[in-house]
Simulated scan of single mutants.
Amino acid sequence: MDDQELVRRGFRSILSAQDDMEVVGEAADGAEALRVLRDVDADVVVMDIWMPVMDGVAATEELVASGNRARVLALTTFDTDENAFAALQAGAGGFLLKNAPPAELLSAIRSIAAGDAIVAPRVTRRLLDRFAGQLVPAVPAVHSSAKRLATLTEREREVFLLVAQGRSNADIAERLHVAETTVKTHVGRILGKLELRDRVQAVVLAYESGLVRPKA
């Protein structure tokens, strides 16, 4: 979903060339995107942050609130874009810089579709470091989250902290000397116990609860 037709054509060309991907719709603004998504069954929505009529943040928020199962990959021009963080707060599964190479875009879409890693973890951490003090709680407040955090086992807490640092499943598996499938199992249990939608909310919760602190 992008207001520039040339950009949409480029994305469509790249995605359509993949054996495991199919473009089922496109739109020039957020409002049109929501209309399109009511009529198609999409797994992932590549959503530009800056669009006319309705921006990507508002469109993401409405999409998530509607119960649509599609996961959102938000696109931003700058890695310090406050609106990219707002998109995560609105429910996007991750975000990517708009000038990312095609291989990175394809990898990000596959990761988002699988509900696996947060996209562009280093950029995510920079945004969290910059805007952590401006968080609008999208997950339980600190006093109510402490009780649920206490339900985690020692290993689950260890995995949770690594997820909060933006680590991928493969990276966590290597650090803990376990199989990647074991990490995926831990992450699933952690999200269930903490009643979180995805890994993005896990990162935000870690910052809100003080387990991970912004850099000085």
Rank of each mutant, 00 (worst) to 15 (best):
A86L: 05
A150T: 09
A117F: 09
A100Y: 05
V44E: 09
G94E: 10
E158H: 05
A58Y: 01
A103W: 01
A141Q: 12
M47S: 03
A114E: 14
A150G: 08
P140S: 05
A113W: 07
A84S: 10
Q165C: 07
N99C: 06
P140W: 02
V183S: 03
L63H: 09
A173K: 13
R130D: 03
S66W: 06
A100W: 06
V72N: 11
I49P: 08
L127Q: 03
S144I: 13
A108K: 11
I172C: 05
K147T: 12
L152H: 04
L152W: 04
D81P: 07
I109G: 08
E61C: 00
S145I: 14
L97G: 10
D81I: 04
D129E: 10
A58I: 02
D39V: 02
R69I: 08
G91V: 10
T60N: 04
L162C: 05
S107P: 00
D79W: 00
A146C: 00
A103N: 11
V72Y: 09
D171V: 11
R126M: 14
A117V: 04
P140Q: 03
T77S: 15
N169C: 08
A179E: 10
A70V: 12
T185S: 10
V142P: 01
E174D: 15
P121E: 14
A74V: 07
Q165G: 09
Q89W: 02
V183P: 03
F78H: 10
G56N: 07
H177P: 00
E61N: 03
A84R: 08
L75E: 00
V178K: 09
T124Y: 08
R69V: 11
D39K: 14
F85D: 00
G91A: 09
L152Y: 02
F131H: 08
A114F: 02
P121L: 13
L75M: 15
S145D: 06
D171N: 09
A65Q: 13
D129L: 03
F95T: 05
T77P: 00
A113S: 15
L73S: 10
K98A: 14
A170F: 12
T181Q: 00
H186C: 01
E61S: 13
L63T: 07
F131P: 04
A74K: 09
V139Y: 07
H177D: 14
A100Q: 08
A170P: 03
T181D: 04
T182F: 05
V72D: 03
L96A: 07
M47K: 02
G166I: 10
I118M: 14
P102A: 14
T182N: 09
